[in-house]
Simulated scan of single mutants.
Amino acid sequence: MFSYPLLTAAEQACLPPLIAEPESIQARFEDSSHQLFACQTTQGEMVLKVCNQKTIDESAFWSGANHLFAADFPASLGEIHLTHVFLEKNGTLKTPAFVSAGVHRFVLTRFLEGKDIDHVTEQWVVQLAAHIAKLHQSSYSNWGTLHKPVFTAEAWASRLHDTLVFLANKQGMSMTEPTLIKALAQIDQIHETQFVPMMLDLRWDQFRGSEDNTLALIDLDAFVIAPRTLDLLLLEYVFTPAQLVIFKQHYTQSHRWPAHTKETACYQLLLFLMNILGETNLAKWMQQL
């Protein structure tokens, strides 16, 4: 008799029976919020993601997501099946089929064939552009969690201010840091009105590529409703200059590309303090855009 690792008997009582001992999958980052396991079941191959609560508690990313967007992770795993449904309807990329989830604890999905992305192809950039462009067709007047965005546009600036101060204090940044002072001073000039679905932790390691060069999205934990400008700013960090040109060519067929304005420094600092891409040099980060 085989058991799902790290789950209680009650948690795995309704899960598909295992036919082999689950195998641990090495996380690509030391601060990964989940432990991953490949599971062979009577219903096919699956992937189990179990929350690492200690890592989540210490995570700058989840601290920022929970503080600013009220993401309520990992309790929000209780609604992650709705995220699967949302992306099937409103996105263009394939996602793993949802099997089960436990509040605060785990997600079980079907395994998606493919390979980890080490070299980004032009086709994948184009596919991601189509996916983001379609997601941005869903526009909201409120923002917050993906399924219940309750915050008004007027609340964005004040919550952003409080989150920057919260994260700076949490990480021991001096309140006299010039970049922080500049960002906080600019917040009153931010007046966001367009909010869209955003994957806060969008990185290439969250995707898989198939043999036919089809891009698939495998990590769905961190979707929120956020300012469109914040989403596009994150993408400017993720892409190389050449990839960004390709992305813009396709994205702007249906959407306008916003100019960098006063909110740029605020959003750059937010992404840095949330440790979005692992950069630790603030000056280098701010000079990238």
Score class of each variant (00 low, 15 high):
Q171R: 02
Q171H: 03
M173S: 11
M175P: 05
T176Q: 13
T176V: 14
T176H: 12
E177L: 11
E177F: 06
P178G: 09
L180A: 07
L180E: 01
I181S: 08
I181R: 09
K182P: 00
A183K: 01
A183P: 00
L184H: 07
A185K: 12
Q186F: 08
I187T: 04
D188C: 13
D188N: 12
I190C: 08
H191K: 10
E192P: 04
E192L: 06
T193C: 10
T193H: 12
Q194H: 13
F195T: 04
P197V: 11
P197R: 10
P197Q: 07
P197I: 11
M198T: 15
M198C: 14
M198F: 15
M199T: 12
L200M: 12
L200D: 12
D201G: 07
D201T: 07
D201M: 06
D201L: 05
L202D: 14
L202M: 15
R203G: 11
W204K: 00
D205S: 13
Q206E: 13
Q206Y: 12
G209A: 13
G209W: 05
E211S: 14
D212T: 15
D212S: 15
N213Y: 11
N213C: 12
T214K: 14
T214C: 14
T214A: 15
L215Y: 04
L215H: 03
L217D: 13
L217P: 03
I218C: 11
I218N: 07
I218R: 05
D219N: 10
L220E: 05
D221H: 09
D221I: 09
F223S: 04
F223D: 00
V224Q: 11
I225M: 02
I225N: 00
I225L: 01
A226N: 06
A226F: 04
A226T: 06
P227N: 05
P227F: 10
P227S: 03
R228A: 15
R228Y: 06
T229S: 12
D231Y: 09
D231Q: 11
L233H: 01
L234D: 04
L234C: 13
L234Y: 04
L234P: 00
L235H: 00
L235D: 03
L235T: 02
E236M: 10
F239W: 00
F239Y: 02
P241F: 03
A242H: 14
A242E: 14
A242L: 15
Q243A: 03
Q243W: 04
Q243F: 03
L244H: 04
I246E: 08
F247H: 05
F247E: 04
F247N: 06
K248P: 03
K248A: 01
Q249G: 10
Q249P: 07
H250S: 12
Y251K: 07
Y251I: 08
T252V: 10
T252E: 14
Q253E: 07
S254R: 15
H255L: 11
R256E: 14
R256H: 15
W257Q: 02
P258Q: 04
A259D: 13
T261D: 15
T264W: 09
T264K: 10
T264D: 08
A265R: 06
A265L: 09
C266P: 10
C266E: 06
C266D: 04
Y267N: 05
Q268G: 01
Q268E: 02
L269S: 06
L270W: 00
L271K: 00
L271A: 11
L271R: 00
F272I: 05
F272N: 03
L273E: 01
